[in-house]
């Protein structure tokens, strides 16, 4: 018999919604962005520049508070979710409703 996991309320921890946007650093080749930019005028969309294609990674994270959630996500970005040589991350962390405040 496995002991029941303590609820978030019992553990005093919170659940956060995390969004990591992975972007290519300035100067890094973005052939997908360049191709989209060159294609748009064929559909009549004019005046478009600076198209960039990145990655969007979303997940839920349990943590003690928002600051520690952010520290953990930034560590993930540095060590795994991005390659810091060629990519930057923009991190958004938001407490999910129902989490103990």
């Amino acid at each position: 018999m496995v002991a029941a996991r303590p609820t978030l309320w019992e553990s005093g921890r919170m659940m956060f919604s995390v969004h990591v946007e992975v972007r290519l650093r300035p100067g890094i080749a973005d052939p997908a962005g360049a191709t989209i930019e060159r294609s748009l005028p064929h559909l009549g969309f004019e005046g478009i520049s600076g198209v960039q294609v990145g990655k969007s990674i979303r997940f839920s994270l349990e943590a003690a508070d928002e600051a520690s959630a952010r520290v953990e996500v930034e560590d993930m970005c540095r060590r795994f979710l991005t390659n810091p040589v060629i990519e930057d991350a923009v991190v958004a962390v938001e407490a999910l409703e129902g989490s103990p405040a």
């Binding site: 890094i28 080749a29 973005d30 052939p31 040589v85 060629i86």
Partner: peptide, 11 residues
């Protein structure tokens, strides 16, 4: 060290 980015020139 370093990284391999996508080819310049799209191909």
């Amino acid at each position: 060290p370093g990284a391999l980015q996508k080819n310049a020139g799209l191909k």
